[in-house]
């Protein structure tokens, strides 16, 4: 950043009057170069606009078109037997909660365990390099392919055409595991080596050092990584469309039958419209607004939880 400061100082001294400035003024770049400099700055400003405008538009349109349906009925009823206006997304909220929780229950222990192995035990062994390579490849699995793989697995186990929330959770776990492994590994590597050595030097067993020293030290970062992993999968649609299907009714059972989540709810409101299309569009946008709120909340949590955990610990 020091170069930025330097450039600023040059600008300032060139623009203010006085003896030194006169000298500098004579060495000011000629107009062609100044123009190009200005044009480049303009292009950078445009690039920022090109990033900010779509984001602002997505948020604004979700609020504008979805706000009308943010009412009590939306959060208290399902789409069961609803063909026109009214209805709600309670079934999708419950589905999102259950499937996301199940995904996290699969992905976080596996991902964290693998990361602990990679940083604390494996180091440069063959299993470690194999696992690292597997994680690298898993990151690039397109989400719909994860859905197809889960479909192939469950149709092999339970016969073709089965749909369940659990199958959806398995598909999503394939997407979430590499995210958790990577972020956890990174955070665990940041734990100072001295802490581990101090623990070992006091005669503590390796697993005690990891559990009592390394993991607590890394906890804020680990939490943030896990939350980001959840944020990554909570908006997934395609794999769930394949293996969890969709339904208009409540379903509290992960192991049995179709289960709708918020993103799938949004998609089906658009794709399977009834006669009163405006009601369906409104519900889709209301769903988008709720989903955006969930995603923003998760992002904020990932950003601020580490500091909060650290503060809590300091006060204790």
């Amino acid at each position: 950043m020091s170069a930025t400061v330097l450039a600023h100082d040059a600008d300032r001294s060139a623009s203010c009057g006085g003896g030194v400035a006169d000298v500098l003024a004579s060495s000011r770049p000629r107009w062609g170069r100044r123009l190009r400099n200005r044009l480049a700055l303009g292009a950078v400003v445009l690039a920022v606009a090109a990033t900010a405008v779509p984001l602002a538009s997505v948020i604004w349109e979700s609020v504008r078109r979805g706000m009308a349906r943010i009412d009590a009925e939306l959060f208290s009823s399902s789409m069961w037997a609803v063909v026109g206006p009214g209805g709600g997304l309670l079934h999708a909220l419950v589905g999102t909660l259950l499937i996301t929780a199940a995904t996290a229950l699969i992905a976080i222990p596996l991902g964290l365990g693998a990361a602990i192995f990679l940083t604390e035990y494996g180091a440069e062994g063959r299993l470690a390099s194999l696992t690292r390579r597997a994680v690298d490849i898993m990151v690039s699995i397109p989400s719909i392919v994860a859905g197809l793989a889960a479909y192939a697995l469950f149709s092999l186990l339970l016969g073709p055409g089965t749909r369940s929330g659990l199958a959806g959770a398995v598909a999503l776990a394939m997407i979430m595991i590499p995210v958790v492994v990577r972020s956890s590994e990174e955070v665990l590597r940041l734990v100072p080596q001295d802490l581990r050595e101090a623990g070992l030097a006091l005669g503590a067993a390796r697993h005690k050092v990891i559990r009592r020293v390394v993991l607590p030290t890394a906890l804020p970062g680990l939490t943030s990584g896990a939350v980001l992993g959840v944020a990554r999968i909570v908006g997934e649609t395609a794999p769930l469309l394949l293996v969890a299907g969709f339904t208009d009714a409540m379903n509290y059972n992960l192991a049995d039958g179709r289960m709708t989540t918020l993103p799938v709810f949004i998609y089906t409101q658009w794709s399977a419209k009834g006669l009163d299309t405006a009601a369906y569009d409104e519900r889709a946008w209301a769903g988008a607004l709720v989903l955006m709120a969930v995603v923003v909340a998760l992002q904020l949590a990932a950003r601020h939880l580490p500091a909060q955990i650290a503060k809590l610990r300091r006060n204790r």
């Binding site: 990033t51 779509p54 984001l55 538009s57 997505v58 349109e61 979700s62 944020a231 990554r232 909570v234 908006g235 997934e236 649609t237 395609a238 993103p263 799938v264 949004i266 998609y267 658009w270 889709a284 946008w285 988008a288 989903l291 955006m292 995603v295 923003v296 998760l298 992002q299």
Partner: peptide
Amino acid sequence: DLLAAVPSVVFGLW
């Protein structure tokens, strides 16, 4: 980060 987190189904609708 926020732009990266917007679900693809919302982008589809948009």
